[in-house]
Amino acid sequence: MPSETPQAEVGPTGCPHRSGPHSAKGSLEKGSPEDKEAKEPLWIRPDAPSRCTWQLGRPASESPHHHTAPAKSPKILPDILKKIGDTPMVRINKIGKKFGLKCELLAKCEFFNAGGSVKDRISLRMIEDAERDGTLKPGDTIIEPTSGNTGIGLALAAAVRGYRCIIVMPEKMSSEKVDVLRALGAEIVRTPTNARFDSPESHVGVAWRLKNEIPNSHILDQYRNASNPLAHYDTTADEILQQCDGKLDMLVASVGTGGTITGIARKLKEKCPGCRIIGVDPEGSILAEPEELNQTEQTTYEVEGIGYDFIPTVLDRTVVDKWFKSNDEEAFTFARMLIAQEGLLCGGSAGSTVAVAVKAAQELQEGQRCVVILPDSVRNYMTKFLSDRWMLQKGFLKEEDLTEKKPWWWHLRVQELGLSAPLTVLPTITCGHTIEILREKGFDQAPVVDEAGVILGMVTLGNMLSSLLAGKVQPSDQVGKVIYKQFKQIRLTDTLGRLSHILEMDHFALVV
């Protein structure tokens, strides 16, 4: 994948999101292997301009796509893939009243899908469409860049269908997702969380590099694949309309690839034109409109599966009536509230959605109805927002919020430890010299600072030695090549209790 991002070429006709291997024109390309080798690009942008032909009021008969309808489940399912879809609609009884809503608040519980998330729908649909058009064949390999849930859905379907599955996901995604993927037989590649989507090191860039190296491999490409919004247009939206008897006044959905909100909203605009569509985008993402909503100094966020630093091709923002931004604290607070007060075992993005819903639905009156999409299960986040310690460490809970008995030293300040200034190293000294210094002084790690004293990161003896043994660096290389740029900081005025929580999850903390 090139470091400079080429513009994806656009073909003359058809839909841009065809499933299957992508040609340089962004659509299915038939021909000899030699032709494909000559024409197939190194990668295709996940934010390529959409060429979708959908228009409100256009006859369904003019759609270029294969459409399906929700099917009634048999008493005995032939395999677990038949437990994807037909998820329950559940009334939220307490939270709406707590925040003064007059309307009825309903939750579409997508964590009841077989793999635990709304992404099971698009995973199965992308595979079925690729099999139907002859792209996927027995023994082929599926590769997908994902925040985890699409990966789980694909790995689940691949396990049943017999495909090899490789999932490329950023490091910030939970260990629970990784464990589930491994249990399903998927191979996992992790990428830096802070890598831009168009960087060769991003999950998108690495996935395309693997595709170019592995024979008979395919990126189904949830960011561009029409099967993504079509899955929701054909099934999720129809289920909502049936469950609500066609009567709903507002739908609120958090947005990642945009397939969920695009597919549902398009069908609702056709069948229930008075329904307002509300999009939820986390602070630090750029999906919301108008652009002024996205202006923030924050560039990272903890909530998973929603928000991006690019506009995915499948996201149709014209069908969203209003956007709201959400933050991590309210997302996790509301997710825990949904679990504790409503018994809905949902993930953090569901918290984002409901946090926005109780604001947006203030305009609705008694007798009206708001539906929220709860995308995934708490299963993926047992060591994250479900953990009091994690919430404390991230600053989303305060010590006084917890009532468990603490040891005698818990409320003492870090400054009472009488710490001395640490050994520091410059980023320009060599790895070999740094190892000598650390061994001589008896230290395992040291902060790396520039000549102005600005902290650049941390270097550890173990990481340097393993990097040297693996051949990633040489003793003569500058130590700046092996620094940890993500590390926890703590102030002298913070409590030892807070430091204790940090050290339970990290090997060190830097006192500043």
Rank of each mutant, 00 (worst) to 15 (best):
K267C: 12
K94N: 13
L181E: 01
E128I: 12
G256K: 01
V189L: 12
E131C: 02
S63H: 08
E34W: 11
A8F: 08
A183E: 08
I264F: 10
G151Y: 00
L77S: 02
H65S: 00
K83A: 10
P64I: 10
M169Y: 03
E176Y: 01
V168R: 04
V168M: 06
A158Y: 01
V206I: 14
A69W: 03
K247D: 01
L124W: 09
T53I: 06
G162E: 03
A183G: 13
Q55G: 11
T260V: 07
R196H: 02
L101I: 04
V10N: 13
E239L: 03
M250L: 15
K269P: 01
G20P: 09
T135R: 10
F111T: 05
G20R: 12
G263W: 01
H17L: 13
I214R: 06
K94I: 02
P64F: 15
S73L: 12
V255H: 02
S27F: 06
A107P: 06
D129F: 06
T236N: 12
L251H: 05
G246K: 09
R51F: 07
D198T: 06
G274W: 14
L124R: 06
D221S: 00
I143N: 00
C109T: 05
T53Q: 06
T141R: 07
S50N: 12
I84Q: 07
A48H: 09
L77F: 15
G162S: 07
P49L: 07
L136P: 03
P229Q: 05
F112G: 09
P70T: 10
D47N: 15
I166Y: 06
E171F: 03
P192G: 05
M89H: 05
K119Y: 01
H22V: 13
R182D: 05
V90D: 05
T193K: 09
R196W: 08
G116E: 07
L268I: 09
R182I: 09
V180M: 08
I76N: 10
P273N: 05
K108H: 01
V204K: 07
T150S: 04
E62S: 13
S199N: 08
K108F: 02
G14E: 09
A24E: 12
R190K: 15
M126Q: 02
A60E: 11
S174N: 04
F111Q: 02
I95R: 04
R58G: 06
G96Y: 04
K177A: 02
V160T: 04
C52I: 03
A226M: 10
T191K: 01
E37Q: 13
E29W: 14
P229K: 05
R196E: 01
L220R: 01
W208D: 12
R190M: 04
H67C: 10
H65G: 00
I92Q: 03
E171L: 02
P192S: 11
A226S: 11
L42R: 13
S32E: 15
T262F: 01
F112E: 07
S175T: 12
K82F: 10
R58S: 05
A237G: 14
A158L: 02
T53G: 05
H232T: 03
K30F: 04
F112Q: 06
M173E: 01
P21R: 06
K97N: 12
D35H: 13
N212I: 06
N113T: 06
D234N: 13
F99T: 10
P229C: 05
M173D: 06
T257M: 01
H67S: 15
E37H: 08
A69I: 05
R266Q: 08
I166W: 02
D245M: 08
A155E: 02
E40H: 10
G205V: 05
K247R: 13
T53A: 08
P145A: 07
N216P: 05
R91E: 09
H66G: 08
F112R: 01
L230R: 03
P192I: 06
D79Q: 10
L81D: 05
G162Q: 06
G116F: 07
A159R: 13
G256A: 01
L136M: 12
P229A: 02
E4H: 11
S63G: 08
I143A: 01
L81G: 15
D238I: 08
Q55V: 11
